[in-house]
Structure formats: C-alpha cells, structure tokens
C-alpha cells in the first residue's frame, strides 16, 4: 500500500518558511496526511530525502537569484502537480518591493557586505518562470486551504478555494464592517478570501495578505479612503505590502504615489 501512495515534496525559494510550516501546523490532520501521501522531501520535518519525480510539489518563495530561476525549471520537470504556496511564490512577496526601485538599492541598506550578494533585480512569482497547476495565496497561507488543495488533488477533484473578497468571510462570521462602522482603512473589499476574515474580527483592517480577489476595483476603494482623509502616499502603502507586485495592487500603489507627488508639487 505504502508504495502506491502519492509522493509530496516541499521546495523553498526566497521566503520566510512560514507557509511550509502551515503543513506542520495541521496538527490534527498530520498523521492522516502522512498516511495519504508519502512525504518525500520536507526539510522542516525530516532530513530524509526521497529522489523525485514527485506527484505533488509545494513550492514556497519567489525567484530572486539566477540559480532560483534554473532550479524552478528542474522542480517543474520532476513534479506532476506544482502548487505554489504563499504570497512570495504566488505574487513575489514583500521582497518584490525591490521591483519598484533601481537594482541594488536595498542591498546596501540590508547587508553589511553587499558585495557577497548576487541576486536578480526583481523578485518574481513562480508562475513567471514555469507553468503552475494551482496557486495558493496568503501571507501565510491558510492551513485549511492547504489541506483542501492536497485532498482535492488526491481525490482528482477541483479544490474549493474561492476567489471572492474578504468581505464575504466577514459577513459569514458576523463581523461588523470596520470601514463602514468605524472608518478604519481596510483592504477587505479588494482582497481574496481565505483567511476567514481574521484581522477585521479582532478590530484591525485587512492587510491584504491574500492579494487581489478575482474581481477588484482598487481605484474605487482608494478614492473612498482618500475621501475619509487618508493621504495618497498612505493609501499607496496599503497596496505595497506582501502582494505589492500583484498587478492590480501594483497599478494602484503607483497611481497613489503619482497622486501624492502631484499633491506635494
């Protein structure tokens, strides 16, 4: 039986490891998961390594070095299903802030010896380099969604992972809208569901961790925030976090920064 179990491998690119830890965070389901799949490669769990090819590859992190760009192609070639996990792998991550500035601008600020650093000018999602079978969003991903994707792949069905807004999760759990009832800046209306409406439920506006929803109107939300008195540069910051390089958010932060410049000029 064990020889026929599908194999699962976890790969890491530029990232914080938080998303792959979501797999270990599936405490109640972990043993069941280990019975359903053969965990062939997962450095956070075991140094044991089974050579590929793999049935399911979970890929965390963004591509930021020339070596990354090569390695992602090798992983694709040895994986039947490739699932990206998290904002880095699916949208470029927080490190994609480098995409907005001249190459090397941050290296000198962050590293004592930038001369040892060899990296690309941009941080890009896995899908910019290879075909991806499924993208899980979030910073970090939601472990229930991760289990759902793995379970669905094992059953040969489509994962039930929805692309609507965080607002739908707030309403389903009965959270009163922070934007309407308190005037709190909230990215919920333009952000993909998946977290369960976590932050608004504790009184904090949505950070946009899951990136753009299926349908977004970032311009209209930004206009509302500015009507409430928020400065354009602050609105830009809302769109420039973990999913800064997601196309819809990137366009809006650029527009807000341009408006901010104009306002000062």
């Amino acid at each position: 039986m064990s020889t026929t179990r599908p194999s699962l491998a976890v790969f890491k690119f530029t990232s914080c490891d938080g998303c792959q830890l979501s797999l270990l965070d599936c405490e109640d389901e972990l043993l069941e998961l280990a019975r359903a799949v053969r965990i062939a490669k997962f450095a956070q769990m075991s140094r044991a390594l089974v050579e590929g090819p793999y049935d399911i590859a979970l890929v965390e992190g963004s591509v930021t070095t020339a070596r990354d760009a090569e390695r992602v192609k090798e992983i694709r070639a040895s994986s039947r299903q490739l699932v990206t996990i998290g904002a880095c792998a699916s949208a470029g991550g927080i490190q994609a802030l480098r995409n907005f500035v001249p190459a090397g601008s941050y290296t000198g600020v962050v590293y004592a010896h930038p001369e040892y650093i060899s990296s690309l000018a941009t941080s890009t999602p896995i899908s910019s380099h290879v075909d991806v079978d499924f993208e899980l969003h979030g910073c970090p991903i939601d472990r229930h969604q991760l289990l759902e994707v793995i379970t669905a792949l094992l059953a040969g069905r489509r994962p039930v992972v929805r692309g609507y807004s965080v607002c739908q999760e707030c309403k389903a759990r009965g959270t009163v809208c922070l934007l309407v009832a308190r005037g709190t800046a909230c990215m919920g209306p333009v952000t993909r569901a998946g977290c369960g409406g976590l932050c608004p439920a504790v009184g904090r506006g949505c950070f946009g961790c899951f990136g753009p929803a299926d349908t977004v109107n970032t311009g209209s939300l930004a206009a509302r925030l500015r009507r409430d008195g928020m400065q354009a540069r602050d609105v830009a910051r809302l769109f420039k976090t973990f999913n800064a390089a997601a196309p819809e958010f990137r366009v809006q932060s650029a527009a807000e920064e341009a408006a901010g410049e104009e306002g000062r000029g």
């Binding site: 807004s165 607002c167 739908q168 809208c177 209306p189």
Partner: peptide, 12 residues
C-alpha cells in the same frame, strides 16, 4: 466604475 464587486450589498 464605483462598484467594488465585493458582495457586501447582497450579504447584508
């Protein structure tokens, strides 16, 4: 052009 398509109207 103003609608966010967020679904709040239908959910309330």
């Amino acid at each position: 052009e103003r609608c966010l398509a967020c679904g709040n109207c239908t959910l309330v």
